[in-house]
Design a protein around this nucleic acid. Structure first.
Lengths: 354, 354
DNA sequence: CTGAAAGCGCTTACAG
DNA sequence: CTGAAAGCGCTTACAG
């Protein structure tokens, strides 16, 4: 592969001049510029980004460590992150932690070794030593979606509290009293916050949340299935299962169906995170929708600010409730005003007041 | 950030010795090794992968350019690719082309500039000059899923011909005669091959495939919606719509539903590519399932073979038909023998013989 | 077993 | 405007 030396030789100039032309440095004669460009063209020369990075100490690359690529929420987040990063002249390398802390650490380490300019993380756990060290060592970092308390790193996330309150109001309005939740790992903020929001909202209605109605999941489908089976085995099973993410809702659906039960007649189902398929599931699933694309973009902006020496900002965006039929509401205007063609699910918000 | 010099100084040895210790070179005294390791520990030293790559001319990195991250098929492919690559000591950088040739070229260029050791591509088009040049220039490359004819690059893909024949047999058996397809871009192999397989299978049953029954899509949801609307506007609409991927099936569902029609009573639906949600859609969708994980792993193996100087092998794996209720078959044993807990959809194959 | 030195492909003061 | 030279952080023959 042709190097800058080859180009310099072909153009009859020094490598310094070639470099200047390539980097749009102003002090280059038109003649030299033309000859260099011609040589570049002829040799099909492409600068070696590795060498450039070593010299400039910047890679123009962002690392993104997400908890699970198979989760459509993160996949959409990753897409918006890449898009915004590209607009700022950065590329992004994605690491998939698969909800496993060791794998997360593996990716963080690899990314750091590659000297990425900044790191976007949605932590799978409460913070490994590696992660904490990285933050303390001053690696430009931003948390997205999930975060680690006590670490001085900007957080870009959405607040589902109001939407969860709306959900409980909706469920209560439909006459449901025994509500259960499948939580994510307590070590993650989204794992604990969603349970807390749920518990608080229920308290407003004087509803208890017994331990038996709190299933412990890990944000993946299989755990949702297991937790749901346990609920169904209870002497008094819940009337509603609220899954803290869409994959656990999938597992719940599997479990419910395996018993030959119907949603919502036999048991109602709701989920955190909205995905396009929820419109077409049987029945369509009521969900809390996050402004995923906006979260990804805001996270990149914060990180780029941090990298380029501007003060980064934490951002919290509201989530909203999308009512469908999985909790028992009769088909209403919500069902018809969908926009099936939009990129993001853009469903109707139903903010029942409590 | 500590460099190898700092470690050498702290350990009282030369950088060469530090390097040897780090690379497990045998000729290092136990004493020197211990001192180096201690210094590494103390300084929290991590080798700079950028510098190492520049020196060794290898990045231990694979590039993966996929057509669309939002498509669960590719997301699963990406996951298995990363897993297998990691097992071989490589990391992978994913580029999402979003089905746009320019974006695909952008990623290929960026990856090449980063001097990745090899490239895995599922081409969005028939082959841009850049892609063809890269292949000719000897960049280790392997095509996955889609490929570009006439280029000397190994191909790892699945053959859906038999499964599509099974699908047509299934449809014919249910009494359907007017079958339509929503195709992908003709410039992609999967775009044209799936139509051809469908056409051939139909011919075996003496069924015509009129142009009006071939919808032109681009593998994304919106195009599936538009194509379906066009079908429904026909004086004689088809009885079945076969979408060449799962996203276009989603769009088709949107369109069918927007007209207030029912599946399969008013119109039947089938899709290429099986996803877990298809079990829970209304109705469950009959689909052609690819051995996605195996494709990803085989592709990595071929590429690593190529990189490390062994002769790479092209691989073709069969796809299989998964019958569900979206084409009108009465619920049968297929419905109950699901394995809802498996990672990959592991549905029952129904190979009706023609 | 160990170190001095060259060199990977760039960029960028510095001098002219 | 231009080039010679230093240097980014490593690895690896070469000599000892």
């Amino acid at each position: 592969m042709a190097s800058i030396k080859d180009v310099a030789a072909a153009a009859g100039v020094s490598v310094a001049t070639v470099s200047r032309v390539l980097n749009d440095h102003p002090s280059v004669s038109d003649d030299a510029r033309a000859r260099v460009l011609a040589a570049v063209q002829e040799l099909g020369y492409r600068p070696n980004a590795v060498a450039r990075s070593l010299r400039t100490d910047q890679t123009r690359t962002l690392g993104l460590v997400i908890s699970d690529v198979l989760n459509p929420y993160f996949t959409e987040l990753a897409r918006s992150v890449e898009e915004e990063a590209r607009a700022h002249g950065y590329s992004v390398i994605i690491g998939n932690a698969d909800e496993r802390p060791e794998l997360q650490d593996h990716h963080v380490r690899t990314l750091l070794d590659r000297r990425i300019d900044g790191l976007l993380v949605s932590p799978t756990d409460g913070g490994s030593p590696l992660m904490l060290d990285a933050a303390r060592a001053g690696t430009p970092m931003v948390f997205v979606d999930r975060w680690i308390p006590g670490v001085d790193v900007p957080v870009v996330r959405s607040d589902g509290r109001a939407a969860v309150r709306d959900l409980v109001a909706h469920l209560h309005g439909l006459g449901h009293r025994r509500l259960a939740i499948i939580a994510g790992p307590a070590a993650t903020t989204t794992g604990s916050e969603r349970v807390e929001a749920f518990r608080e909202a229920m308290a407003e209605y004087g509803l208890p949340l017994p331990d038996a109605y709190i299933g412990q999941g890990d944000f993946q489908a299989e755990s949702g299935r297991r937790a749901t089976e346990r609920f169904l085995d209870l002497a008094e099973p819940p009337e509603v299962v609220f899954a803290a993410d869409n994959l656990m809702a999938l597992g719940a659906l599997d479990a419910i169906r395996a018993r030959g039960l119907r949603v919502p007649e036999d048991i109602a189902l709701a989920a955190f995170d909205d995905i396009r398929w929820f419109v077409h599931t049987d029945p369509p699933i009521t969900a809390v929708a996050q402004p995923t694309g906006e979260l990804g973009r805001a996270a990149v902006r914060a990180l780029v600010d941090r990298i380029e020496g501007r003060p980064p900002q934490s951002v919290t965006l509201p989530a909203r409730l999308v009512v469908r039929r999985s909790c028992g509401e009769p088909a209403s205007q919500e069902q018809t005003s969908q926009e099936p063609t939009s990129q993001e699910p853009s469903p109707v918000t139903n903010r029942s007041q409590s």
